Amino acid sequence: MRALLQRVLEAKVVVEGETTGEIQHGILVFLGFAKEDTFEKGQKLIDKILKYRFFDDEQGKMGWNIAQAKGSLLLVSQFTLMANTQKGLRPDFGPAMPPAEAKILYTQLVTYAQSQFPHVQTGIFAADMKVHLVNDGPVTFNLEIE
């Protein structure tokens, strides 16, 4: 399971001209699931994201998590994160979880995230999403749970 985290000043997801999720200051999270991923792995990843010291504290160091920074979370499913890009000139999506299973896991993880943190917005699973963001820093981290 992979998550690409971007600290943002603002971000939103637009599907067919409608905004489906929007945050100001916070973290935009792109989530990718591998075939062997589980809800338990996802819980660990969400917990890590919520505790990850990603924001500047009073000393200007990355010492605050999202709650301490009074930020929001925008979760977006992105199966392309699981592509194998080591060989050839075309991504191999074989490692990615099949869409039907991934949708269930994504929905479960969104519900879990919302139960752990009050400011969670989302994209729409498997939709043609247009993601708008203003990256803060830029600060971007790749987290993996095995």
Rank of each mutant, 00 (worst) to 15 (best):
R2A: 01
A3T: 07
A3S: 14
R7N: 02
E10D: 14
E10C: 13
A11H: 07
A11L: 06
V14L: 01
V15M: 09
V15S: 08
E16A: 15
T20D: 01
T20S: 06
H25P: 00
G26I: 08
I27T: 15
I27M: 14
I27G: 10
L28G: 01
V29T: 13
V29A: 15
L31A: 00
L31S: 00
F33E: 00
F33K: 00
A34C: 08
K35T: 09
E36T: 11
D37T: 10
F39R: 08
E40S: 14
K41I: 03
K41S: 11
Q43L: 09
Q43K: 15
L45W: 05
L45D: 05
I46W: 07
I46G: 09
D47H: 10
D47F: 05
R53I: 04
F55I: 05
D56Y: 09
Q59A: 14
K61W: 06
K61Q: 13
M62T: 09
M62C: 04
M62H: 12
W64I: 04
W64Q: 14
W64K: 15
I66Q: 02
A67N: 08
K70M: 06
G71H: 02
G71E: 03
L73G: 13
L74S: 01
V76W: 08
V76A: 09
Q78N: 15
T80I: 04
L81F: 13
M82R: 13
N84T: 02
T85H: 04
K87C: 01
K87N: 13
K87D: 05
K87F: 11
G88D: 12
R90Y: 11
P91Q: 11
D92Q: 06
D92C: 04
F93T: 02
F93Q: 01
G94V: 02
G94T: 15
G94L: 08
P95W: 05
A96Q: 00
M97F: 10
P98A: 02
A102R: 03
A102Y: 03
L105T: 09
T107G: 09
T107D: 15
Q108I: 03
V110D: 04
T111S: 15
Y112L: 11
S115V: 07
F117R: 07
F117E: 08
F117H: 09
P118Y: 01
P118T: 08
V120D: 12
V120W: 11
G123D: 10
I124P: 02
I124M: 13
I124Y: 10
F125E: 11
D128K: 15
D128Y: 14
K130C: 08
L133V: 05
V134D: 10
N135K: 06
N135W: 12
G137Q: 05
I145F: 07
E146R: 13
E146Y: 05
